[in-house]
Simulated scan of single mutants.
Amino acid sequence: MLPIRERRTSIDRRKNDETVAAELATAFARGQIEVLYQPQFSCDDDRLVGAEALARWNHPLRGQIGAEAMFALAGRAGMSERLTRHVATCALGDAADWAPHLTLSLNVTAADIAAPDFAEALTTIVDKLSFSPGRLTLELTEHALVRDIEGSVCQLNRLAAEGMRLALDDFGAGFCNFGYLKVLPLHYLKLDRSMVEGIVSGPRDLAILRAIVAMAGALDIAVIAEGIERTAQLAAVRAEGCAFYQGFLRARPMDAQTFAAFARDQETGTAAIG
């Protein structure tokens, strides 16, 4: 039997998880989970190519809770899969109204990859909303893969076979297991912002970027640079051969309605930069 203090801690934790589960259920019902969209652009011509979906929880008491903290809370409450499917349904519903050449990027968690029915569930959502699988990119981090690499490969191969695109997110922020590049059906490497911060003034930073882009090119994997905040950074990633970029230099995350208007303005050439 656990000591009294540990039993109380366990009970308190369970009650807290139950509270979070109830609050999340309410958030789903009342539309408190908001999806914002971070525009993504082509390095070649600055053309808008799509957006990354970023979920936020507008909690009535705690204020705005970001995606990382929200999914951590959902995981402890046993609601991670439900949250992912809710966000995916909302984002795909919004993106279904975009111009057909624009893509949507969705983040995938470790719990998602671990769920044996994840590929089937996501495919069902895509089919139900009549969204072209080729317009959907799934962004996964190394953290999401380390639990069960064989299971991850199986799930991701199935999704790739459906036509979905796969990106290894936050590349350079972790331990960079290059083995993933051999076994995963990747289409993109997404550089962590830490990999582009010093490329303008740091020769070693630039050399590392150049090496990553060369390696990715040899594997027929396109490179996406995130965290682009300065014109000089954009010039550098463009010169080194990155395919796409996103960051505050061009646009900040925006709600669905604002993104739809932004995309229309981009098509007509009336969108402002910044």
Rank of each mutant, 00 (worst) to 15 (best):
G75S: 14
N58K: 00
P133A: 06
S132C: 10
W98T: 10
G93Q: 04
G93A: 04
A74C: 11
G134C: 05
I65D: 06
A67F: 05
R82A: 13
I125E: 15
A88S: 13
H86S: 02
A67H: 07
L61E: 15
F131L: 14
T109I: 12
R62H: 12
M70A: 01
V108A: 05
H101S: 14
I113H: 01
T137P: 07
L106H: 07
E68K: 09
L138E: 06
H59G: 06
P60Q: 02
L102K: 04
C90Y: 04
A72I: 00
K128C: 05
E68T: 11
S105D: 12
A88E: 00
H86I: 01
A55N: 04
R82I: 00
A91H: 11
A99V: 02
L129F: 08
T123K: 14
A74W: 12
L136P: 05
P116M: 08
F71Y: 15
E120D: 13
G75H: 14
L92Y: 03
V108T: 05
M79S: 05
F131S: 10
P116W: 02
D117G: 09
S130L: 10
K128Y: 09
A95P: 02
A115M: 03
E81G: 09
V108E: 04
V108D: 10
A74P: 12
F71R: 11
G78F: 07
D127H: 15
R56W: 11
I65T: 04
C90P: 00
A99E: 14
L83W: 11
A114P: 07
V126I: 14
K128E: 14
G134M: 01
L129M: 06
T84H: 01
I113T: 04
A111M: 00
A111E: 12
G63R: 06
A114W: 03
W57C: 01
L92K: 11
Q64V: 14
A119C: 05
G63H: 03
L54Q: 07
L104I: 13
G75I: 04
D117L: 14
L122G: 02
S80L: 14
T103Q: 09
L73Q: 15
L73D: 15
A74L: 10
S130C: 13
R62D: 02
G63T: 06
